[in-house]
Write a protein that binds this DNA or RNA. Structure first.
Lengths: 205, 205, 205, 205
DNA sequence: CATGAATGAGTGTTCATTCAT
DNA sequence: AATGAATGAACACTCATTCAT
């Protein structure tokens, strides 16, 4: 490795690190104020620079959310695919997917909040076509798990799986709105309680 | 009734009807595009008038959401209070509250969507202080039902009621995002399935 | 006089009276809030009718000021012409013109205030060409009186009459800004004090 | 002085200079068109930039007049206080205050015009409370000078000082409406003539 | 005569974005 | 990398004016 190469690598790495830091800041602000309601200046203020300076790092405000959301979704699908590829039964797959979802909230909380609040509006933009694609796949995945569970006799036969899917999807991601990483409950603990509720119900037996 | 009174009544009624119609239009647009992202001109376009004309009927964009949300909340609390005052046990109260919630979604769908998406940001404005108050009361009400159910032995003793409350709150209102009054499922049918899931779980027994 | 004519006369008279009443109201509002800053609705509110209703009586907001100002100026020039045609000397003419000016303030206070505050801006509009014409004649008249007074030896020979004219013009009309018809001083009393100051100075002798 | 300090000083100075230049332009436009009737775009046009660009330098149209007027008043009171603190008699104080006033017109002509035309309306806004305070002090100052002059026997005993004060106030500031710095008369020359008129009258002796 | 609803041009202001330095 | 000044389109809102009733 020549010093020259060393330099260009370290500057490229430094640049990537700066981008990531700025994106983390932006995600936090977008999540708390809402993407549309957040001004570029607010993001810049939070990062300690001037509004115009952000444009050295990013093409536009839109490209910031874009990167935030796609990073999160890539990570999420990697985790989901790991679960789906491990040959578990419906019930165990259910448990693992829920658990991974809460872990995602733990790791990407601002991104999940943005995803939950803004993806419906953003999806109208062709640039964010992958959001619709991801939602389609998400639905497909969950329905398959639920349907197989019914078929295998693990889940109740009278379930409207389309309906149950919607309830699950909504609750899982909305937890990002109130989850605090520093609170008393770990992501795994929350997942356990949630799984217990959905699998066994809240009635005493 | 003199003709005079008749006239003033009918014009007052006509005015109220026009307001209500415009508010319904505004609610629809706010719900689908988001309050902040919706321009006054878009609302006016949807109503078939010009932007400025809305200001003959309303003071501001803000006063429109205000009226939309407070009308919904007033109606909702009337229904909730009817249930809470009828002396039912925890489990039946739970069922009735959930059912009423889905009926609200049926009757006030756009308002519920707005409430769900925007109330966090709007609540920062003193004018919308009633949103925080309503949320506080909502939480109090549901926690009381859940806690009593645990105490009475109707609900499982190991529930983290604070956590369950959050899950219920999220799912119930988020259903407004996908519910269609003209779809195959009535509000009562959706409520029944939801109640079954939460009370008994999705496992086969 | 036929009853027919009587009717049309009385309605014409009633209409003229209504106009005059509305104009008096408008003048008051224009004077206190400023012409540009006053909305048509404010004038209508003060008159106890709705904004649009004013347009039954007047073509436009502009035509209201127009009528207010031209009525005042017509009255003023009639009084000035009476003085100028009575063959008085420079000093007595001076005294009489000042006295008439203060009487004008007494009778047309709101109009004078509007004239003072707005005529400079209105004069740019061709419709108000008579304002410039009136100002020209006003200057001519006063300069003639001052110059004759100097020539006749009644006024000091070292006066810059152009300068003195401006001072007089400004003070005389500006008095409309603070004069109250119901205050302790009559228009004639104020005129006397003003004349004494300008003619003899404020030094003790 | 390090280059660093040099830089930050020169940019801060450049910024202040730009502000001052824009304010001078704004004052000119406000004075000639009237504050309310002037649009922000007109100010910007006069400055050779676009409407929105003004908001990089100023918070609002209001904050521009605010700065214009308060700068003028601060300067004026500094000059007045210098005169009042120099232990002169009533007559000489009178002469010096008048002279300083005309010098103010010379230096702050547009600001004086705005002050004269708009302060009555602006004073209704709490932000401009200092206008009322300044007017109160102005009146107090002049009345004290006139009253002392009467007491000391320098001014005529039969003066209604309240009335004379109003005349003086009006004329002095209204001169800003016609004074041209490049005209034939200097501020001091105008002051001399004005003082002569008020002190000794215009009658020949 | 007056109302009530609407128009449409224009106002102050915001904000994502650009670019010379 | 970042600044600071500017752009220009868009926004919420205002208001003189119109007109059917």
């Amino acid at each position: 490795m020549s010093p020259r190469r060393r330099d260009s690598e370290s500057t490229a790495a430094a640049r990537a690190e700066r981008r990531a830091g700025l994106l983390a800041t932006a995600a936090e602000v977008f999540a708390s104020r809402g993407y549309a309601a957040t001004t570029v200046r607010e993001v810049a203020d939070a990062a300690g620079i001037l509004g115009g300076s952000l444009y050295y790092h990013f093409d536009s405000k839109e490209s910031m959310v874009d990167e935030i959301l796609s990073t999160f979704l890539t990570d999420m699908w990697a985790a989901y695919d790991r679960v789906l590829g491990s040959g578990l039964g419906a019930r165990e797959t259910f448990q693992e997917l829920v658990t991974e979802s809460f872990r995602m909230i733990d790791r990407h909380r601002p991104a999940v909040v943005i995803y939950q609040n803004e993806s419906k509006h953003l999806a109208a933009n062709p640039r964010f076509g992958y959001l619709q694609e991801s939602q389609r796949r998400f639905r497909e995945t969950w329905l398959a798990v639920l349907d197989r569970g019914v078929l295998d006799g693990e889940f109740r036969a009278d379930l409207d799986t389309g309906l149950i899917y919607r309830f699950i999807r909504d609750t899982v991601w909305l937890a990002a709105g109130w989850y605090r990483g520093d609170g008393p409950l770990s992501a795994e603990e929350i997942a356990r309680q949630y799984i217990a509720m959905v699998l066994e119900g809240i009635l005493s037996t």
